[in-house]
Amino acid sequence: MRLTVGPHRPSVYWRRRALVAIGLAVLVLLGWLAVRGSGGSKPAAVSSTPAAASGQPAPVTSAPGDLASPSFVQATPDPSTTPSMVHSPPPSNVAPCGDDQIAVTVTTSPSPGVVGGTFTFSVAIVSTAGDWCSRDLGSGAQEVRVLRDGALMYSSDDCSSGRTSDVRAFAAGDAVRYRYTWSSYRITPHNCTLAKTPAQPGTYQVVARVGTKVSAPVDFIINR
C-alpha cells in the first residue's frame, strides 16, 4: 500500500514526515520543561501573622493594682512659696518645728473600697506654732502604715527607693498635703512585692508619720 503522492520517490516523503514528527516532539518536550520549571519548586512559606504581632509585649501576669513603686506626691504647694499666702518671707534662720508644733492627719479614699482595689491616703501637715518653724517633709521623714487589728501589713518605707530630705518653712497656720497610693496587693510586711491575692474584706487602719510625729489611726473598710 502506497501512502505517498507526488513526483518524488517515497523515501523523500517519509523523511519529511519524520522531520515534522521530530519537530512536534521537540515542541511538546520544551513546553513540558517550561511548565515543570515554573511550578516544580515551591517558595518558602510566609507566615500569615503580621510582622507587628511578633513585636507585641507578652501579657502582664502580675497581680492587678498599682504596679509602679508608690511615692508621696505633694497635693498642695510649698507654703513658704505660695503667692496666695499672706505673710512675709521666712527669716534666714528658722527653728525646727517640734512635734507639739505640727498636726498630722490622714484620710482614705475610697472607704469603703473593694477587694483588689487601690486606695489613696491623703496626709495633711499643719503648723500649730505661733511663729515660723521648719520641718523635714522628704521621703525619708514621711511614712504611711497599713495595719489590721494592730498588726503591721504594709509600710511605705518598704517601697521607698531613696530617703531624701526636704526641709520646708511654715508660717503659723500653714498647711501642706501629700497623697500616697496603696495597692491592696501590697500586704506583706517589710516587702514591696505585690502578693498573688489582695487584702481580704474587713476593717483596716492607716497611720501617717512625719519624723517622730505620728497621726491618730484612721479606719477604712474593704468590702467584697
Rank of each mutant, 00 (worst) to 15 (best):
R2C: 07
G6N: 04
P7Y: 09
P10E: 15
S11H: 07
V12E: 11
R15H: 11
R15G: 09
R15C: 10
R16T: 10
A18L: 13
L19P: 01
L19Y: 11
V20S: 10
V20H: 10
I22C: 13
L24V: 15
V26E: 09
L33Y: 08
A34S: 11
R36K: 12
G37K: 13
G39H: 14
P43V: 02
P43C: 01
A44R: 14
A45R: 13
S47V: 01
T49E: 11
T49Y: 08
A52K: 10
Q56N: 12
Q56Y: 10
A58K: 10
A58C: 06
V60R: 13
S62Q: 14
A63T: 12
G65Q: 02
G65W: 03
D66P: 01
D66A: 12
S69P: 07
S71M: 11
Q74G: 13
A75D: 12
T76Y: 02
P79Y: 00
P79K: 01
T82C: 11
P83S: 13
P83F: 10
S84I: 08
V86S: 14
P89R: 12
P89V: 09
P89L: 11
P90G: 03
A95W: 02
A95R: 15
C97Y: 00
C97P: 03
A103R: 10
A103I: 05
A103L: 13
V104W: 00
T105G: 03
V106D: 02
P110T: 02
S111P: 04
P112Y: 09
P112R: 13
P112G: 10
G116C: 03
V123G: 00
V126K: 15
S127D: 05
A129E: 02
G130N: 14
W132G: 00
C133P: 04
S134T: 05
R135G: 00
L137E: 05
G138Q: 05
G140S: 06
A141I: 07
R145W: 02
V146G: 01
V146E: 01
R148V: 05
D149L: 07
G150A: 04
A151L: 09
L152V: 14
M153C: 06
M153H: 07
S155N: 06
S156F: 03
D157K: 12
D157W: 06
S160H: 04
S160L: 12
S161F: 08
A169F: 06
A171I: 02
A171Y: 03
G173N: 01
D174Y: 03
R177Y: 02
R177I: 13
R177W: 04
Y178W: 09
R179D: 15
R179S: 14
Y180E: 01
R186T: 04
I187Y: 03
T188N: 05
P189Q: 07
H190W: 08
N191W: 00
N191M: 01
C192F: 03
C192D: 00
T193S: 13
A199F: 00
P201H: 10
T203K: 10
T203M: 02
Y204N: 05
V206A: 03
A208I: 02
A208D: 02
R209C: 05
R209V: 14
R209N: 07
T212F: 07
T212P: 03
K213L: 11
V214A: 09
V214F: 04
S215Q: 06
A216E: 15
A216W: 03
A216C: 02
A216S: 15
P217T: 09
V218Q: 09
I222V: 15
N223F: 05
